[in-house]
Design a protein around this nucleic acid. Structure first.
Lengths: 169, 169
DNA sequence: ATCATATACTTAGCGTAGCTAACTAACTAT
DNA sequence: ATAGTTAGTTAGCTACGCTAAGTATATGAT
């Protein structure tokens, strides 16, 4: 088989630049990417324990404890003790958390939707197929979409809270 | 025009999952994503000043100063004073820095290349076109590919990184 | 030549985010 | 009861992002 490295390189690069572009829509919520990502898990997946969240987000338990503390302080989630096991704590999104997450997601995807609006039907076709290919490769069956989302990876950079971020150029 | 939000959502999600998958190949180098990204700028673009690097990476000057300190400590780059302007400092990749970056990039993209090797010619076609569309949207003209690369964005393990911010005047 | 301003970078200090190690509390099993 | 396991927290370290302020050098006007 022939070498697909050059294509892989372009796909890789395209994915990175695409996400950087979209990420610029995010900063307005005032919630950091890590918190948004964890929040999305409970908004789309329902209440979760700290351990489940840590596992879903692939971070350590102490890290998730701290993320939850921050989200709770900001009123995005609330803790609920389990009825039968006093060790476990359920994290549930508050209406505010739900709203903030959905709005941020809409804002983020809206930019891309605008970009895509300019495409011809044939281009939409190509992009749709390509997306299916990538979904197949990553083993996703049309997941929740944002659920997994905002990991910094691009992680983007971290975060400072509160103040509005400035944009470039 | 019809609403492209559903497609945008899928493309967004696909890009995120794709990068998370690729990122898992990275952890071996021992270099953080932010440093790798900055390193890629000097490896592929030649010597740069701190200011140019900060601008290229969309981080503040102090942040870049610290990233450079870390890379220098690890032997990935070296500082060189400018011949005509004593204020500027040129950052150049060392052979070690060059090697580490290229190896990491190869390793990262190799995973995707293997995935793509299974595709049919028609699928490669679709993916190629889709990639061109994304490149057009993000305003890239087949850039160096990695140059911009490893921005955390998703940041998976390891560290999360940053976001686009502007420098002070 | 002097002085004010601008530029390039560094230092200092703050908040967030990741980790491991070690701790408390509570459940389970013997 | 006692030992072991599990859920979560606390403590301490590194790294990354920022702004504000400081130092050194360059430049332009007087």
């Amino acid at each position: 088989m022939d070498d697909r490295t050059p294509l892989a390189d372009r796909v890789h690069s395209a994915a990175i630049h695409l996400l950087r572009r979209l990420r610029k829509q995010d900063d307005t919520s005032g919630v950091t990417p890590s918190r948004l990502s964890a929040l999305s898990v409970v908004v789309f997946g329902g209440p979760k324990t700290i351990g489940q969240l840590a596992s879903a987000e692939q971070v350590s338990a102490p890290t998730m404890t701290r993320l939850v503390v921050g989200m709770q302080r900001d009123g995005l989630v609330k803790r609920e003790r389990d009825a039968t096991d006093a060790r476990v704590i359920w994290i549930r999104a508050t209406p505010k958390g739900d709203r903030i997450l959905r709005e941020g997601r809409r804002r983020r995807v809206a930019q891309l939707a605008r970009d895509l609006a300019e495409l011809s039907p044939a281009e939409v076709e190509h992009l749709t197929h390509a997306t299916e290919i990538i979904e197949r490769i990553t083993g996703r069956a049309r997941s929740n979409s944002l659920g997994a989302t905002l990991r910094p990876e691009d992680a983007a950079r971290g975060a400072s809270r509160g103040r509005a971020r400035r944009r470039t150029r």
